[in-house]
Design a binder for these strands. Structure first.
Lengths: 351, 351
DNA sequence: TTGAAAGCGCTAACAA
DNA sequence: TTGTTAGCGCTTTCAA
């Protein structure tokens, strides 16, 4: 493969006998340059197969037109959809998205953040890993003057100096439990991750609040605080089952947790929804196709991604806006074959 | 937010009263510099919170340590897994991956490729969109001297001058059909995308080859060539059903196509696997959880990603290697609740 | 073992 | 309307 040196502004300029600056301006449609000249420059650029070197442009302009995106996972319905939305929105604004994946690993997350800073992205959107505890890196980034905002997952308690775009975790859970109670359940369990991250804290808070509202006492052994993955659901249900005292209904903090519950239930011969009913926070394509299809709290991924990009770009454009902004996006309830009134067999027995 | 100018080599150099070059070398662990000095430089860099500007580095070094990745979709099990593997492998090699998503749109794909060239990535890995017909962009990229390789999906006929990492589409399909025949089926249908892309052509070729091998004539109205998505499966099955002549078994070119078939079957009251049995090319998490769980040809995503990155890096390191390389990764059969011997109810009737 | 000089390709400020 | 000058922050010779 012959290594043809790339065409540069210089090459185009020489061919037209003008200066690089003229070419640079013409190519960017700068009003300084005449229609006539602009057209000629564009023509030559095309003919030569010119491709602007955005590395050089970034260095010179001190602005990369790139934003960084850090997510914990990629092969996950929610994050897949959010990433897509971020990409699409950024694309519309002529901004490139640099995606990095932490794999729920705090060390790796930190490394990625350093890389993004090194790449001089104009801003960063992050959904932190389950394990992120050390927050110094965020302070360092703030000190570097790079806008960063949290999307969906952020440290709890929140870090001052950072905006965020969040899901209404508490309200969504509250509505789900309201529904479960309306269906007739009184023995409610919760399986989900810890409180050092907002989604763990808020979703559980919604659960607690709902119980209180309905005058249902919280049973400690029906609250399993693990992580947010399938294993956690599986193990959580096993633990619930071992205790010999199964609840009527389980709220799973994420859909992978719910899938883990399905798996464990199958292994144990416990029927869903007849023996134990279930809902989850978070939709996916699996939940639609599984039997019984899973009712859940749906997070508006499209809106999350676009809001995040737009907020970030506005902060980039105006870095001196004083106050942190916190956008909270509402959820909706998707009812499928679990947790529905219309299958009241056991409910009648239970009274 | 105060805009603190980033720390540069110059700042570190001044503080130590040495030159930028010394600092640059020390930071990169260049053997020119003494242990002692290296240590001192590193210390100051740390204290100052130095973050190397890789934009500047790339410009100067004429090498970005970035590779571009172009995929048609991201919220798709196969691509999600492949992306993850590419990222992980690149990460191990200290290479950053720039992901772009074409959304199965040829225009967008072209734009992304131009952007990647503009970013001066060291190489590109691409899985082309269903609609990619104009191949000039690839020739242009080759002319620019940027190594590009096709992963899983490539134009058919193949473009000379490009290496590829592919799945054994033909062999995998062949084995699947062998299995279906062994289970007892003779009335076999195929639903899948067109032949201008290798996965469409090769998988169908495997289907044809299998039929021929078993002396089963190919029935034109049992071959539906549409696209690769859920809609195509849905519509395909509807079409099959309308013809009033249902096959015993359907081979779906991808798992979304299979899901579409499930949906259509449900709508029509056709039972899977009792009335029509099915397998697909490509696994996913949905196929495991759906009822009945779907038997399929599994593509080794991990291996695909890592092989692709490694091959690309080797081409980058040695751009003058003459011959195109084509790695073909084998598949395996995953048997679940569809297309199994152990549910022979209808088979016995059918003789 | 260290440093001076030159340049990567581009843009912004200021002249002409 | 076009061009000149001066970098952006870094690396790569090559000389000291």
């Amino acid at each position: 493969m012959k290594r043809v040196p790339h065409i540069t502004l210089e090459d185009i300029a020489r061919q037209l006998d003008v200066s690089r600056v003229t070419v640079s301006k013409a190519l960017r449609g700068h009003p300084d340059i005449s229609q006539e000249m602009t057209k000629r420059v564009r023509k030559v650029a095309d003919d030569l197969g010119y491709s602007p070197n955005i590395i050089a442009r970034s260095l010179s302009a001190r602005r990369s037109n790139m934003i960084g995106l850090v997510v914990p996972k990629i092969a996950h319905f929610f994050f897949g959809a959010v990433i897509e939305s971020v990409y699409n929105t950024a694309f519309e604004h002529n901004v490139e998205t640099i995606l990095t994946v932490s794999q729920e690993n705090a060390e790796r997350e930190k490394k990625h953040l350093q890389t993004l800073v090194s790449m001089r992205v104009d801003g960063i959107i992050i959904s932190i890993s389950q394990e992120t505890h050390d927050l110094d890196i965020f302070r360092w980034i703030r000190q570097m003057g790079i806008p960063l905002l949290f999307l969906d997952r952020r440290p709890d308690p929140p870090l001052p100096g950072f905006s965020s775009v969040l899901v209404d975790d508490r309200g969504g859970t509250l509505r789900a439990i309201d529904h479960a109670v309306a269906v007739g359940y009184r023995k409610l369990a919760y399986i989900g991750g810890g409180p050092h991250i907002n989604i763990g804290k808020e979703r559980f808070a919604g659960f607690e609040q709902a119980l209180e509202k309905h005058g249902i006492p919280l049973r400690k052994n029906w609250v399993i605080r693990g992580g947010f993955g399938r294993d956690d659901g599986y193990n959580g249900f096993m633990q619930l089952h071992r205790s010999g005292d199964l609840p009527e209904f389980i709220f799973a903090v994420t859909y992978p947790v719910a899938l883990g519950v399905y798996e464990a239930a199958k292994v144990l011969g416990v029927r869903i929804p007849e023996d134990v009913d279930i809902m989850s926070f978070g939709d996916s394509d699996v939940t639609r196709f599984i039997t019984p299809s899973l009712s859940c709290v749906n997070q508006p991924t499209l809106e999350l991604g676009s809001k995040a990009v737009e907020l970030l770009l506005s902060i980039i454009a105006n870095p001196d806006s004083v106050a942190d902004q916190h956008v909270i996006v509402p959820t909706d309830l998707i009812l499928r074959e679990t947790c529905v009134r219309e299958r009241p067999s056991r409910r009648q027995e239970a009274g």
